[in-house]
Amino acid sequence: MSRTISLVDFRVGFVDMLPACVGLVPFGLVTGIGAAGAGANWAGALGMSAIIFSGAAQIIAAQLFAVGAPVAVIILTCFVAGLRFLMYSAAMAPYLQSVPARWQRSVAFLLTDQVFAAAIRRFDIADDAHAGVSQALGGGLALYLSWQCTNMAGFAAGASIPASWSLEFAVPLCFVALLAPGLRSTPSLLAAVVAGAAVLALKGLPMKLNLIAAGLIGIVAGTVAEIVRERWTRR
């Protein structure tokens, strides 16, 4: 394992992530607007995007902060909503076993939904840890820089964007773009449908616990469906 990252792959990762960066412009703007709405100053808004670096967590934090929720509740809610990172981390782990610890830490810091999706696609094609990590770092940096810019632009624009534009709808659309291309097998489709039904059925749970509960239920549904399908075709 080389001790330095591959600049060629770093650049490939950076460039490959640019369309996703463009796609995330509205998400970044919405998140920045959310920070302004919560009454943060520019340093606070930049702190949220630079340190938390997670659209979902930033939006939840800003919304709860705006309604005056206690610090502990805000922190716990964001942690629960961010539990999916535990699973992303676990999915990435087998590919990162051979790389230096500082690269592991860097990839971990940049491991957002988009970087995860791109990296898993990349590792599915070829299990080349050195090239894969270099690309993940390049893509992660592209996403990190554009995220700071769009967040600050949204913060500056603040409340001057009319609500009738429904810009907040761009947030779920960004996730749809990430999700839909992966739904090409029956178990994946079932995992999604079950998770979607469960998240609505469990809406009564406090602190957005329905997100993680529905996610776990969907994962079980997909796994069981795959096992059943295997048994079925073996007969």
Binding site: P172, A195, G218
Partner: peptide, 18 residues
């Protein structure tokens, strides 16, 4: 095996309420 279904399930759980 279970981790393969994390993106499909978790992203849907995030999207649907929004």
């Amino acid at each position: 095996r279970a981790l393969r279904y994390v993106p499909a399930a978790m992203l849907t759980a995030l999207i649907v309420p929004m």
